[in-house]
Write a protein that binds this DNA or RNA. Sequence first.
RNA 1: GGAGGAGUGGCCGAGUGGUUGAAGGCGGCACCCUGCUAAGGUGUUAUACCUCUUAACGGGGUAUCGAGGGUUCGAAUCCCUCCUCCUCCGCCA
Length: 423
Amino acid sequence: MLDLKYIRENVEAVKENCKNRGVEADVGLVVELADRRSALISELNELRHEQNQMAKSIGRERDEEARQKLIEESRAMKERIPKKEDELAEIERRLREEQLNIPNMTHPDAPIGKDDTENVEIRRWGEVPQFEFEARDHVEIGESLKLIDFDAGAKTTGSKFYFLRGDAVLLELGLVRYALDALIERGYEPAITPDLARDEALVGTGFIPRGPETQIYSVENTDLSLIATAEITLAGQLADEILQEDDLPLRFAGLSHCFRTEAGSHGRASRGLYRVHQFTKVEMFAFTTPEQSDAMHEEMLAVEEDIFQGLGIPYRVVDICTGDLGGAAYRKYDLEAWMPGRGDYGEVTSTSNTTDYQARRLAIRYRPEGSRPQLLHTLNGTAIAVSRALISLLENYQQEDGSVKIPDVLVPYVGKKEIQPAR
RNA sequence: GGAGGAGUGGCCGAGUGGUUGAAGGCGGCACCCUGCUAAGGUGUUAUACCUCUUAACGGGGUAUCGAGGGUUCGAAUCCCUCCUCCUCCGCCA
């Protein structure tokens, strides 16, 4: 959510930004509603003031007769208030609705473009493996090594669910632990968060409402939803709080399951584990001062690169263009790992600086030395999304004999050097 | 699941219908005193929004005592719903 005052004072810049991001938001209407709201609040304040004065004078009045008279007057007067309140509530509802459509402002260096085809590759790392044999994709590998069982997942739960079996279980736990260790070393506090969150937290982080393309599973007859990422719980944990400046930056490494309905994503590249309804993820999340957030964003990107370099998986870094940023991100980088099965790079991590866009809705502030509280900045980044990491890992490390080599850094965590066909 | 109790400002804690945004204490800040240290004195110390004014400081107003609703001329105080925490009982890993 953008600041109303900011929108009012920077109408043209906000409009321009919407255009760059390909977002249809009625900035003019927001301003109009905001003006209307201000006027109404003024009127209401005035009415309440009169009412309060009345009530106080009644409290002071000792003469019973005069008192009764005042009470009657006051009673009549107060009838004017509810109508205005209703009017204001309606205006605020509409204002909020419109305001939420307005995306965050954009980093001046973010590439301008209409969709993901205009994202800008910043650099590549690693060498794409050349196989002397017909490379298989992770679905085939997972099947032949009995690592991934989509049939069982479909039977018990539905399509796009899966069992991990055998060494894949060790691989998941190993990847998680590897990522956590990397983050702990850099001062991120590990946290296992709930896999469900109240609507409040989802609204605050901007995951709902999101119209028909919502990604979120809700639990019927409750105000709970399955989280799509630990970002929701990690951000929500500090809602309505005021932090000390000394406490910042705060870094978290959140481990959770992630659940996504993937509504409307049929037909998109989604074979195997690429687009599934449930996966495990270690998520980085940080709360920073406004001055710290750019540097923190670069840090998170560096951590992601370190993690994939450690795994020895070739990747490229992509600077996400304005049209593909989504609502909250001020700037976003993705890591796309090489996936031999598709012969292309595929997204494995994503890190965003959401500046104060998320903090505003969640009301998370900090107190700068000797001054009033102000909104802090929040950032998030994927350390490991296990399902996608598995794709790149199985496919890049497959061997001609059908086995899969385990990257050196994972050997201590997994307890073996390769995965051989089960017998 | 059953029965009770509690939620007040950065923290502790008073306050059961009328100048209470809220006593007192701690902590913070400013100034004074002090040879240093320690102690002491005075003052100040919430947030959001609306509005006026200013270069800035600031002034006025509204709301906020877990959240939301209600009663009342007037609610931290009464009623309802919800959330969270604590105690006891039951059940379960």
